[in-house]
């Protein structure tokens, strides 16, 4: 669905994206992760044809990126929220629908999208009066107007309240059930890992890791748990004797930081250890997720 080979973009002396090879399969939700300035937005803009690559090849939905044939099959929601402020929400979607090769009545499609976004009540309101969350929904909505095969979403849940985020995430899941592919970037990695199938980490314009989420996460050498109990010193002694624990340290707040190479075994054993010693657990936080993996990789890259 997305295929890039040696994709590079230079702006003068600055290389924003360097030699990126991407493969995203049909029906996947692919997370695109990187710090600000890592080259995520530039890559997405090259997928939509807004930016021309300096070198390399880009194909989306089997078509060269930026062509009419390619853009008929994609929906794009950019990170920046710039709309025609004097237009109403409905007029805006009708206009974008006319440009999106919508089949059938554009107005009906616009109304369907407004209803799905829970924006029907604001359909006749000028977009200039929309809140940040409403604008974000509108951005995602206009991308979906043409029933695209591929959705490219740059930070689609930014500025949304928890309810709005949940709605967008649910919708993305439903879309992939129908065969739509989603290419999505987000800064909220803990949220991203809940719904993506595959992931690419980008750092300084280059891919530093890519593949199915499980594989990328399982390549972590060790996982960490932060634990706080009623007697952390005693718990530390008990944990050091447990076979799954590789090390126990303390953090600045007095919590225990437990490193384990078998997180499932440790997670299963912890309640037994606590109850056997009659200790109360205040909290436990597993830190082996996408965010930690990403930071680990960046650390490894920095060390090299």
């Amino acid at each position: 669905m997305i295929e890039t080979r040696g994709l590079t973009k230079e702006f003068g002396d600055v290389t924003a994206v360097e030699d990126v090879d991407l493969d995203v399969e049909r029906g996947d939700i692919h997370g695109f992760v990187g710090h600000n300035g890592a080259g995520k937005t530039t890559t997405m803009q090259m997928l939509t044809g807004l930016v021309t690559p300096t070198s390399g090849e880009v194909r989306v939905c089997g078509e060269p990126a930026g062509t009419r044939a390619a853009n008929e099959k994609i929906g794009y929601a950019p990170q920046n929220l710039e709309f025609y402020e004097s237009m109403t929400g409905r007029d805006y979607l009708v206009y974008m629908g006319k440009l999106s090769a919508v089949n059938g009545s554009v107005r009906e499609r616009a109304d369907d999208v407004l209803e799905w976004l829970d924006l029907s009540d604001a359909a006749e309101q000028a977009v200039g009066g929309y809140s940040g969350g409403m604008l974000r929904k509108l951005a995602v909505g206009q991308a979906m107007l043409g029933d695209p095969e591929l959705l490219i979403l740059d930070e689609p849940t930014a500025a949304l309240d928890p309810e709005g985020r949940a709605m967008i995430i649910d919708a993305l899941g439903n879309l992939t059930d129908e065969g739509t592919t989603v290419f999505v970037s987000s800064h909220v990695l803990s949220e991203l890992e809940q719904f993506i199938d595959t992931v690419t980490f980008l750092n300084e314009g280059q891919i530093v890791a890519s593949g199915p989420l499980d594989e990328v996460l399982s390549s972590t050498a060790a996982e960490r748990f932060v634990v706080d109990a009623s007697d952390n010193d005693r718990l530390a002694d008990l944990l050091r004797d447990h076979g799954s624990v590789a090390g126990v340290d303390g953090d600045d707040e007095g919590n225990l930081v437990v490193t384990t190479e078998d997180p499932e075994d440790f997670a299963g054993a912890l309640p037994e250890i606590l109850s056997g010693a009659d200790l109360r657990l205040y909290f436990v936080d597993r830190q082996g997720g996408l965010e930690e993996r990403f930071l680990d990789i960046l650390e490894e890259e920095g060390a090299e």
Binding site: Q45, T48, G49, L50, R68, A69, N71, E72, I74, Y76, P78, N80, E82, F83, Y84, M96, L99, S100, A101, Q142, G146
Partner: peptide, 14 residues
């Protein structure tokens, strides 16, 4: 200047 051209040009329009 405002950035609204991004979305127009991401549509299937030459």
């Amino acid at each position: 200047e405002r950035g609204t051209l991004d979305l127009v040009l991401s549509k299937p329009v030459s």
